[in-house]
Design a protein around this nucleic acid. Structure first.
Lengths: 189, 189
DNA sequence: CTTCTAATTGACCATTGGTTAATTAAACGA
DNA sequence: TCGTTTAATTAACCAATGGTCAATTAGAAG
């Protein structure tokens, strides 16, 4: 048996995360096996379990990074020189754009129902929503109830989850997205 | 080897469909194995493949039977003695109720992206939407653009797809659903 | 009584996620 | 320099999955 490679070739958490991310994004959680990830890295699949407890936990570590991406996009809008009304519109359009541009990410973040994964993915989506809600409240001209903001979020979510099955990029439905958003904005007036 | 039971105990498509339905509804597509279905029926899992080509086809047959349920629910509202405004509200609430009561069905109808299953489920969801759109248009007090009706549908879809991950039945979110619907109804005024 | 057909079985396959004892490279201390 | 310890890796192993198929047999047809 040949065990333990030299230290220069040692397997790191980051290497695994990177390889796993590529595969998860390309194929989705269900269709990626630990063996595939290990093969891509030229290691045996058992070694992955030294670094991560199981597939779900590895997956969660990958997803965590995805949520930061969404977060950063929201902050980017905050920094822009726009009226609050414009920011609000941008925020919502950008939410859709994010979902349809990073489809596998979005699926991973908000769609997967799998038992072993769901325990992990209860908290992160809620945090994403709370950030969203915070900005909506801040940029709206009139005070909005939590209920209204939540409905806005669900409506955006519905748009994304539908078109994620039918188109491959945001541009294909940009016009439709803008009209959907402008309808939602009526609730803020 | 013992093969072929007496005719009175022969396995029928209907028996399989019933057992499969129970399990799929209880656990969802991914977490039901062909062996589980066969075990429940006291047959070997191989025999299922005599009646159905594969798991996806069996599942589709199950869903097909219940696909009409949504349709029938819409017609049931049509027959009720209610004002158009009330009908409209009921239609939308009932859409959510359906989705959260028959979660596995809804997943297949509108959510699953899986290659092996999706080929079946392209057409049926659009038919369901068209029926929905027809009734919305008929019962709205003012003429609505296709765009508005479509946004309403997407917003309901968003509600269902979100809560399908978090609750097990409609009752848990009924109050929230009603508020969501009443917001959507603002677009019709 | 013979033949044919339809239904059923269970052995088998490749693949999966996951566990673990054995092995070994490298770090550390004396 | 030489043990000793620790961290990393492997390969064999497990139970479960979806799916295939030759063998078998009950009942129908003649």
């Amino acid at each position: 048996m040949v065990a333990r490679k030299t230290v220069s070739k040692e397997l790191t958490r980051e290497m695994i995360l990177e390889a796993a991310n590529d595969l998860f994004v390309k194929k989705g959680y269900q269709h990626v096996s630990m063996r595939q990830i290990a093969t891509k890295l030229n290691y045996s699949h058992g070694s992955l379990y030294y670094h991560f407890k199981n597939k779900a936990e590895l997956f969660f570590a990958v997803v965590e990074n995805h949520f930061q991406l969404l977060d950063e996009r929201m902050f980017a809008i905050q920094r822009k020189e726009l009226s609050n009304e414009e920011k609000l519109k941008h925020l919502m359009q950008d939410y859709i754009a994010f979902g349809l541009t990073h489809q596998s990410h979005y699926e991973i973040m908000f769609l997967i129902k799998d038992e072993d994964v769901r325990t992990f993915t209860e908290e992160a989506p809620m945090k994403a929503y709370q950030r969203f809600a915070h900005f909506v409240a801040a940029w709206s001209s009139k005070a909005l109830s939590i209920q209204v903001i939540w409905s806005m979020f669900l409506s955006l979510h519905g748009f994304v989850t539908h078109y994620i099955r039918h188109v491959n990029n945001y541009e294909d439905v940009e016009a439709m997205a803008k009209r959907h958003v402008s309808l939602l904005l009526q609730w803020t007036k």
